[in-house]
């Protein structure tokens, strides 16, 4: 994997990825870690044990582009049931955006969005990967997840 097993950063607040092998971290320019089938070239996210198109069991690690376009989106307006582990209660839950982001001509990935106001989201807009706080554990550790943020001033058609 891509150095993601050691996810603790040298800072006052311990930051950890919610799971290893999903995105490169720590990194100035984080990337989602996908897979590419060695037989048919199909690109997926995350890297699967075998290819969904041809069934081949050799799928290589493949870092995905950081920028893409928003193919569709919605908002998550209610607190998801378990296994959701965001740590909120019904009282503290804030809606979040979620979308399908097309990364080049490689793959569309499902991701949280940093924006949750549908008025400020548009199908076709340019978005970029960010690593953002997901929840803070009791010991102060900040758990991080991936999200796509609108690229301001570069809105696509």
């Amino acid at each position: 994997m891509t150095g993601t097993d050691d996810v603790r950063e040298e800072s006052t607040v311990a930051q950890v990825a919610f799971a290893p092998g999903v995105f490169t971290w720590p990194s100035e320019e984080p990337r989602l870690i996908g897979g590419r089938c060695t037989e048919c070239g199909s690109v997926t996210f995350p890297r699967p044990p075998s290819c969904a198109r041809c069934g081949a069991t050799a799928v290589d690690e493949h870092l995905l582009p950081r920028r893409g376009t928003l193919w569709t989106f919605t908002t998550q307006g209610f607190l998801p049931k378990e296994p959701y582990a965001g740590g909120e209660t019904v009282e503290t839950f804030r809606p979040f955006g979620i979308g399908l982001v097309q990364l080049g001509d490689e793959v569309r990935v499902e991701s949280r969005l940093t924006e949750h106001d549908p008025e400020r989201l548009r199908i076709g807009m340019e978005v970029e990967l960010e690593i953002v706080p997901f929840r803070t554990d009791d010991d102060g550790t900040e758990v991080l997840t991936f999200a796509f943020a609108p690229v301001h001033g570069h809105g696509g058609g």
Partner: peptide, 10 residues
Amino acid sequence: PAWYGEIGHF
């Protein structure tokens, strides 16, 4: 993936 539900996508 197991994390798919943990981050609220499931």
